[in-house]
């Protein structure tokens, strides 16, 4: 009896992620949900710029690599051209909440029927650990070497809270992948977000609080503990918006 296998919606390509990085877990959850909802065949995924830029090689569905921050606009173009396609973006914090803020907010307020998987690890990973829009106050990064000073560098953005004010957002939930219990919850959330799109309810976003051991300078385990101690108090987990019970207009 097979008790554990690779989801079908993941390719055989070996990922390039650092040891202890949680992208692998999140990729797997997305792929499992695609499998379980039979979405791969009609799915078009949009990869960001950032650590997960090469997600196009890892997901088995059709994929598009978008310019930095523009994934929600690219996804909008796909969905409008092919309304029957299942469309998701997979974006990091720099991509979604800094350079792509306008694209994110406007896709959300238009209620584009797409799903955004938002990986928040409070740092720019691919470029080597610079401050992200979600870096915590006093967090040390390459570009905040004395800690993020909110007086000069401003405050972190709480994306789920911000987007949940917009009428176009049908479902917004923040989850974490720091422990088995939370991983299971994260999968449930992603599946719910996908179902939201299938039901044509509007934009769904799952913010996944995750770790970056390499750029945080911590071991994988210590990184998860740092996540629990520092990120979760600032980014409380939970459902921020749920209009899935409402009738489709």
């Amino acid at each position: 009896m097979v008790v554990f296998e690779k989801p079908k919606a993941l390719t055989d390509a070996q990922t390039h992620y650092c040891p202890g990085c949680t992208h692998g877990i999140i990729h797997r959850l997305v792929a499992e949900c695609m499998d379980e909802l039979s979405l791969e065949g009609k799915a078009v995924g949009v990869a960001p710029v950032g650590c997960s830029v090469m997600a196009y090689d890892y997901f088995g569905c059709d994929m598009i690599q978008a310019p930095h921050g523009r994934a929600p606009a690219v996804a909008t173009g796909v969905k409008r051209a092919k309304p029957d396609a299942f469309v998701f973006t997979y974006q990091g914090d720099g991509d979604l909440a800094a350079i792509g803020t306008a694209e994110t907010v406007h896709a959300a307020t238009r209620g584009e029927n797409i799903t955004i998987i938002f990986v928040n690890n409070a740092i720019y990973g691919m470029t080597g650990g610079q401050m992200a829009p979600t870096s915590l106050p006093n967090q040390i990064t390459q570009t905040t070497p004395y800690g993020r000073d909110v007086n000069t560098a401003g405050y972190p953005i709480r994306v789920c809270e911000m987007l949940s004010t917009l009428d176009g957002v049908a479902y917004a939930e923040r989850v974490a992948v720091d422990c088995v219990k939370n991983v299971n919850k994260a999968k449930k959330a992603i599946k719910k977000a996908f179902q939201t799109q299938i039901d044509k309810k509007g934009l769904s976003i799952i913010e996944v609080v995750s770790s970056c051991p390499t750029n945080w300078g911590l071991s994988p385990n210590d990184a998860l503990q740092w996540l629990r101690d520092n990120m979760l108090p600032y980014y409380p987990l939970g459902v921020y918006k749920d209009k899935t019970g409402e009738e489709v207009k």
Partner: peptide
């Protein structure tokens, strides 16, 4: 929301 977004919507639609 901007010309930047518009051209990227074009990119997305053209991709299909």
């Amino acid at each position: 929301e901007s010309e930047v977004a518009a051209i990227n919507m074009v990119l997305g639609a053209a991709s299909t």
